[in-house]
């Protein structure tokens, strides 16, 4: 079972390597990448620092969505629920209890994780489209609740104490750590027996159950991990936004951004969400900021092109193309290799 699941894993570079060693290799690469980003932050100016901070938060957000949607096959339309609760928990502990940003961020993560666990109870009974719609309903209800709840200052919103917000360099490092944490979690989930069982559940949950896998237990764990990671990203967003209102923090747009990034980069892969976050946030959102309508056209159009022609996403496509050009031995081999499905 392990080998079949692995060979189906998109973006797998060398299926011959044992599971754990590949995971360790990936973590090693992650550490190197993290060091490189740190160095980039050192040499880059304020522009790199602020761009990087937001980008890292989006990488974490996309990766968290990917862990739930890509690895476990549960499409969530409720990213805003966790971004919102985490940001609020952080702002409230900081303003009302006088906590600093670190415990505040941890509080946000814990509250977002707790919300996931709470929502998992009813939501995990729903399948496919209904799960997606359920997460959407929960988010909308939470948003409307916060809009009317005087404890959180209703629709007027709350803010993080501005003097408690770390400086730009610190924010960059915080963002980086959060992103590394999210990608690291994805790596651990991917290349472990846990991940293999998760794939089995995604592909055929009935079969996995018959083989003795605790399907709902696995799904619960994934949902909580994803919620906590979104909570961390939400903490970074809260720190950079400073003031926010329910309609912004529980917005549909968080889901949309995470989903667009993952689908464009490559759902169910570890690298894909990173590629997607860079392509969308850097390539479209910031580059086309002067042309908002055009950037919408780009985003929508790119989504359509990707799902229509490159359904696996950009990263698996790049890997496939690279491998094909490396292994090109003549027309016979090429046509034989052109057909296998990406994943």
């Amino acid at each position: 079972m392990a080998t079949t699941a692995l060979s189906r894993a998109p973006g797998s570079v060398a299926p011959a390597l044992p599971l754990r060693r590949r995971g360790i290799a990936a973590l090693g690469a992650l550490v190197l990448a993290g060091a490189a980003c740190l160095a980039l932050g050192e040499v880059g100016g304020a522009g790199v620092l602020s761009l990087g901070t937001t980008l890292f938060a989006y990488v974490a957000l996309a990766q968290a969505w990917n862990i739930l949607g890509g690895f476990s096959g549960q499409m969530s339309l409720g990213v805003g629920a966790f971004v919102g609760t985490s940001a609020y928990a952080m702002a409230l502990t900081m303003t009302r209890l006088g906590w600093s940003w670190l415990p505040g961020m941890v509080a946000g993560m814990v509250v977002a994780g707790a919300l996931s666990a709470l929502l998992a109870l009813p939501l995990l009974r729903l399948k496919g489209d209904y799960f997606a719609v359920g997460t959407l309903a929960a988010t909308l209800a939470l948003d409307a609740w916060f809009d009317n709840w005087s404890f959180v200052n209703k629709s007027m919103g709350v803010s993080v104490p501005i003097q408690a917000v770390p400086g730009q360099t610190e924010m960059y490092v915080i963002g980086l750590v959060v992103a590394l944490f999210a990608v690291g979690s994805a790596i651990v989930m991917r290349w472990s027996t846990f991940g293999v069982r998760l794939l089995a559940i995604r592909e055929d949950d009935l079969a996995a159950r018959l083989l003795g896998v605790n399907v709902s237990g696995y799904r619960l764990v994934v949902m909580v991990v994803s919620g906590m990671l979104i909570g961390l990203a939400g903490g970074v967003f809260a720190l950079s936004l400073v003031s926010f209102v329910p309609d912004g923090m529980f917005a549909m747009s968080w889901t949309i951004e995470a989903l667009v990034m993952v689908v464009i980069g490559g759902m169910g892969t570890v690298i894909g969400p990173i590629v997607g976050a860079v392509a969308v946030y850097y390539g479209i959102t910031t580059e086309l900021a002067n042309f908002p309508t055009l950037s919408l056209f780009f985003e929508g159009g790119l989504l359509l092109v990707i799902v229509r022609f490159v359904p696996g996403g950009l990263w698996p496509f790049v890997v496939r193309s690279a491998r094909r050009s490396l292994e090109w031995r003549g027309p016979a081999i090429r046509s034989a290799r052109a057909t296998p499905p990406p994943s």
């Binding site: 100016g45 602020s50 761009l51 937001t54 730009q168 950079s240 936004l241 926010f244």
Partner: peptide, 22 residues
């Protein structure tokens, strides 16, 4: 330099930051 935040607070904040730092 004028950027469009499409009436969203999050984008308005990010763009203000980018206008200064970038």
């Amino acid at each position: 330099t004028i950027l469009n935040n499409a009436s969203t607070a999050t984008t308005a904040s990010n763009q203000a930051r980018a206008l200064v730092t970038r």
